[in-house]
Design a protein around this nucleic acid. Structure first.
Length: 278
DNA sequence: AGTACAGCCTGCCTGC
DNA sequence: TGCAGGCAGGCTGTAC
């Protein structure tokens, strides 16, 4: 499932392949995934130029400059099974293609088995930032993501630490895979109450989050068992070959050789070492 | 207000 | 073999 490292990988590849391209067509066979509607988005973006690609949390952002008007943004959320694929117009169709953004001699295809993802038009930067800042906490690599910040928000959280770090309004970009991995690296049990973590422990957690995300970006993200994540070219990521606990139930902990356990935490599959994580 | 959880959606896996 | 039912989970809306 695409989280911060996966979206970052797609963003970086898009930045070097489609910036400067003009959009010649926009079509969708899944109107429920297009906000406000396929017709409005089509009218807004056709003839306009892609001038940049950004990422905020797990949202991919295409910056679009129409002729003689201010920048628009197309926000693309891949949710669970979404893919953004760069193809040529005559390439064979990809299964579950929901949206095609046509460029000159290129196509951006948004494919999504479960239809959880969406493409949303933002009229300008102001509208975009207003919405995103209202519901998203700081980026893990931003200067705002300090130990003091983390301590402040966790100290009055009445839930477990895993649920807390996956809460996008507290920290943005962390999903189930990297929550599992970061907590293992930090030696913290996923079910531990967020508010009882100490300052030192929070510092280690903050560093672990950054370390795990950074390493995954280096490996172009994770394509877990179901391989739902693919990069812009349809290729698998590689971080799954470096999972420490995620999908490692029954295997041995690399640090202490204990058997990795599995349990549900707030409805989410959770992997941990019963010995290393306290 | 803050936390928990159903619902969205569909392919895959399990068990009968 | 075939089919029903459960499972996966990011995020939103609703309920407590």
């Amino acid at each position: 499932m695409p989280e911060l490292p996966e979206v970052e990988t797609i963003k970086n590849d898009l930045a070097r392949t489609v910036v400067g391209e003009t959009i010649t067509d926009f079509s969708s066979n899944s109107p429920q995934q297009i906000i406000p509607s396929p017709a409005v988005v089509k009218k807004s973006v056709v003839g306009a130029k892609i001038t940049g690609v950004e990422r905020r949390a797990k949202l991919l952002l295409l910056k679009i400059q129409p002729y003689s008007r201010s920048n628009l943004y197309l926000g693309i959320h891949l949710k669970m099974t979404g893919r953004m694929l760069l193809r040529k117009p005559n390439d064979r169709p990809d299964p579950y293609t929901r949206v095609i953004i046509t460029l000159k001699n290129k196509e951006l295809r948004f494919c999504d088995i479960r239809k959880f993802g969406y493409v949303k038009l933002f009229k300008d930067k102001q509208e975009l930032e207003k919405e995103l800042n209202a519901k998203l906490g700081p980026e893990p690599f931003s200067p705002q993501f300090t130990v003091n910040y983390l301590q402040k928000i966790l100290s009055h959280k009445n839930t477990n630490i895993k649920t807390a770090i996956m809460d996008q309004s507290l920290i943005s970009g962390i999903g189930n895979i990297y929550a599992n991995e970061a907590l293992y690296l930090a030696g913290i049990k996923p079910t531990k109450k967020a508010k009882i973590l100490g300052y030192k422990e929070i510092g280690i957690l903050r560093d672990s989050i950054r370390k795990v995300l950074k390493k995954s970006i280096k490996y172009r993200g994770s394509s877990a068992k179901d391989e739902s994540y693919r990069d812009l070219y349809g290729e698998l990521g590689h971080y799954q070959n470096h999972f420490l606990v995620y999908e490692q139930k029954g295997k041995r902990c690399q640090k202490c050789q204990s058997v990795i356990e599995y349990q549900k935490v707030n409805g989410r599959g959770t992997f941990f070492c019963p010995h290393c994580q306290k």
